[in-house]
Amino acid sequence: LTVEVTLDGRRIELHGLSEEAHEILRHALERNADDKEIKKILEELRK
């Protein structure tokens, strides 16, 4: 799955996400998580 997010003013596409990762990010974006929170989530998903 692919998600497009804006971090530090740049639009980035995240490819190859699992369903779980996609859901976690989608929920964070829906509640307008800040860049710091999104980065933390991405860091966790990379593990």
Rank of each mutant, 00 (worst) to 15 (best):
H27E: 15
G16A: 05
A21P: 01
L1Y: 10
E4S: 05
E23R: 12
L42F: 05
A28H: 04
A28L: 09
S18V: 02
E30H: 06
V5P: 03
I38Q: 00
T2H: 09
L14A: 04
I12D: 03
E37K: 04
H22N: 11
G9L: 00
G16M: 05
H15A: 09
R31Q: 11
I41L: 11
D8I: 01
E37W: 06
S18Y: 03
T2D: 05
V5C: 05
L29Y: 03
L7H: 05
E23L: 10
L45S: 03
E30T: 06
E19G: 07
L7F: 01
G9I: 01
L7S: 05
I24E: 10
E43Y: 02
N32A: 13
L1Q: 07
L14S: 02
D35V: 11
L7Q: 04
E30G: 07
E37Q: 07
L29C: 05
N32T: 06
D34N: 11
L42I: 15
V5N: 03
I41W: 02
A28Y: 05
K39H: 13
R46F: 15
L7T: 05
A21H: 10
D35W: 09
D34R: 06
S18D: 10
I24P: 00
G16F: 09
T6R: 08
R10V: 15
E13M: 09
K36T: 14
L25K: 00
L45Q: 04
D35E: 15
E30D: 12
K36D: 14
I24D: 07
H27M: 10
V3G: 03
E30M: 07
E20A: 13
E13D: 09
E19H: 11
A33V: 08
L45N: 03
E20F: 08
I41E: 00
H27P: 04
I38V: 07
E20W: 09
R26K: 11
T6W: 08
D8A: 05
H15Q: 09
K39V: 10
L7C: 14
L7A: 05
K47R: 13
H15Y: 06
N32P: 04
N32I: 06
I24H: 11
L17Y: 04
E43F: 02
R46C: 15
I24A: 11
R11V: 15
H22M: 13
R10S: 11
E44T: 12
I12F: 05
R31F: 07
H27Q: 14
L17A: 02
I12Y: 05
L17H: 01
A21V: 10
L1V: 11
L25Y: 00
A21W: 15
K40P: 01
K47D: 10
R11H: 09
K39G: 09
R31Y: 06
I41S: 00
L14D: 02
I12N: 02
L25Q: 00
D34Y: 04
G16D: 12
E4H: 06
